[in-house]
């Protein structure tokens, strides 16, 4: 599947901004199951980007604008080829795989993705109250992941505007409604509680004609869990699906803080932001 993605972010500054410095994580990932064929980042006012790869392997652009400006437009456009396939739903973990999953060595190797973060921390009682039953009913850890996804999909409401980028998993758990970022943070928390390494993925979702899918108006977020032999497995709790070729990965990290698509510091008054995201399929053959 080949896609063209166009994301436009427009910032307006009341009274203007100076000494602005920003970081952008918008370049789609190239690696297993996906390749970014072309990427351009256009900045208005114009500015030079410095690129580096961060600890989690994401491509980061840093740029600054010192002169006074009242508006900043960041336009990312990308051509991406995705050939990843969703994990068959009937997949099971072998005893050897389950054994390795619980080994000290495995846990240490993926320790970053097992620890609670400020976004994912839950009081221990809260976490176990929600998941104990599901955990007991699960055939294996992968089955548990599937059940958690189902649980989130059925018990929680997708509703834009009730939460913010600052909302923590604990708050979402109580409120039971929010957006993909909240689904993702809570899922991370519930996986990590049971020692399944899990990481945050930011990216885009191609919905096309499928109107049942949620989350293509803006950037999307989902979870990847790590299992021995299987590697990182994408699970989208907002849509309760294993991730396949409709999901276009941009950045990964421990939680939202590691993948913030655009962040910046500047001198000046309040800002407003308008974002638009368009995902076009350049070919549709093989879409699941």
């Amino acid at each position: 599947m080949k896609y063209h993605i166009l994301q436009v972010n427009q910032y307006q500054y009341a009274g203007g901004a100076t000494e602005s410095i920003n970081q952008v994580r918008l370049r789609p990932y190239t690696g297993e199951g996906q390749a970014c064929l072309d990427f351009t980042l256009d900045l208005q006012p114009q500015s030079k980007c410095a690129w580096h790869k961060d600890y989690f392997g994401n491509e980061v652009a840093t740029f600054s604008i010192h002169a006074k400006h009242s508006q900043l437009t960041v336009t990312a456009s990308a051509d991406v080829d995705v050939w990843a396939e969703a994990l068959p739903t009937e997949t099971q973990l072998s005893d050897a795989m389950s054994g390795e999953l619980t080994s000290t060595e495995f846990r240490r190797r993926y320790a970053e993705y097992l620890a609670a973060t400020s976004y994912t921390a839950l009081p221990p009682e809260a976490a176990t109250a929600e998941t104990d039953e599901l955990w007991r009913a699960s055939r294996d850890a992968l089955d548990y992941v599937r059940r958690i996804s189902d649980f989130l999909y059925t018990e929680f409401t997708y509703h834009a505007g009730v939460t913010t980028v600052e909302t923590k998993a604990e708050e979402f758990l109580a409120r039971k409604s929010g957006v993909c970022q909240d689904f993702t943070h809570l899922m991370l928390a519930l996986c990590r509680v049971h020692q399944i390494p899990a990481r945050y993925v930011s990216g885009y979702l191609y919905c096309g004609e499928n109107t049942a899918l949620r989350g293509d108006a803006a950037m999307h977020a989902w979870v990847e869990v790590m299992f021995p032999t299987l590697g990182w497995v994408g699970v989208d709790p907002t849509n309760h699906v294993f991730v396949g070729s409709r999901h276009i990965r941009v950045a990964v990290g421990r939680d939202y803080r590691d993948i913030v698509p655009i962040k910046g510091v500047y001198r000046g008054g309040a800002q407003t932001l308008e974002t638009s995201v368009r995902v076009h399929a350049l070919e549709t053959a093989g879409l699941q």
Binding site: K53, Y55, E105, R108, A111
Partner: peptide, 24 residues
């Protein structure tokens, strides 16, 4: 030293002072 298990890797990479920004 972490992958060889001499110092537990989890102790280091989950420390609040661990600073991924300076890796590499």
């Amino acid at each position: 030293i972490l992958y060889e298990g001499v110092v537990p890797r989890d102790l280091i990479v989950t420390s609040e002072y661990f600073c991924p920004q300076v890796a590499h």
